[in-house]
Simulated assay, not measured.
Amino acid sequence: MTWKRAVFALFTVAAGTNVPTPLLLVYQERLDLSAEVLTALFGCYAAGLVPALLVAGELSDRLGRRRVAIPGIVLSAVASLAFAAAGDSLTLLFLARFAQGVVSGVVFSVGSAWVGELSLASGEGAGGRRAAVAMTAGFSSVR
């Protein structure tokens, strides 16, 4: 993989993970969810994200960046499709949002390290800047 493809993966996952955020308000109205349930849906993402951030980097050190990042990227699309397919199922909304957190943690941690490694020839700090710009652009692309 080239650093450009790794950066694109970071951008895509960051954008995809934020798409559901405004939709949660639609689900709140459509399913008549309380403020507490809506907050739990937001928090469910973090509950998946934080442990994945802590575990994925070490896992990719042992197994290799590609073996951890590629499944994470693919599963990110699956999690987004599950969220889109949730319909009136609150259980599927929670599961999809949790899965989005897990795959985001995997891709963000492993992808950032991978971009750094793939960018070594571009000079010190190039990888970190590329990863930061990719994720920031992805997060800000959703309105």
Rank of each mutant, 00 (worst) to 15 (best):
V106D: 12
F42V: 14
F11C: 04
G111A: 02
F139N: 15
K4M: 09
L90M: 05
G116P: 00
A79P: 05
T2N: 15
L120M: 13
L92P: 12
F8Y: 15
Y45S: 01
L31F: 08
T136C: 13
Y27K: 15
S76H: 05
C44M: 15
F98R: 07
L31T: 03
G105K: 04
R62H: 11
T12F: 14
F98V: 02
A40T: 12
G116L: 00
G64W: 05
G111N: 01
P51G: 08
S89A: 10
A99D: 05
L49Q: 11
Y27T: 11
G16H: 06
L120Y: 04
P71Q: 08
A132Q: 08
A15L: 12
R97F: 10
L75G: 09
F94G: 14
E117Y: 00
G128C: 07
R129W: 08
A132S: 14
M1R: 11
T12E: 06
G105H: 02
L33W: 04
A14C: 04
D32S: 15
V106C: 11
V74I: 14
G127H: 00
V106G: 14
W3D: 00
G125P: 01
G105R: 03
T91P: 11
A14M: 06
L120E: 15
L49Y: 13
S112N: 09
E29P: 04
A69R: 09
R5Q: 15
S112I: 05
R66W: 08
I73T: 12
R5A: 14
T17H: 12
P20D: 01
V26T: 14
S109H: 03
D88E: 14
A85K: 09
L59S: 09
G128H: 05
K4A: 11
A9W: 09
M135K: 10
G105P: 01
Y45T: 02
A14D: 01
S112Y: 02
Q28G: 07
D61L: 03
R67T: 03
I70C: 04
V142E: 03
S119Q: 01
G87W: 13
V37I: 15
T136M: 12
K4C: 09
G105S: 01
E58K: 15
A9C: 08
A52P: 05
V37F: 06
T91M: 10
W114S: 03
R5T: 13
M1W: 14
F42W: 07
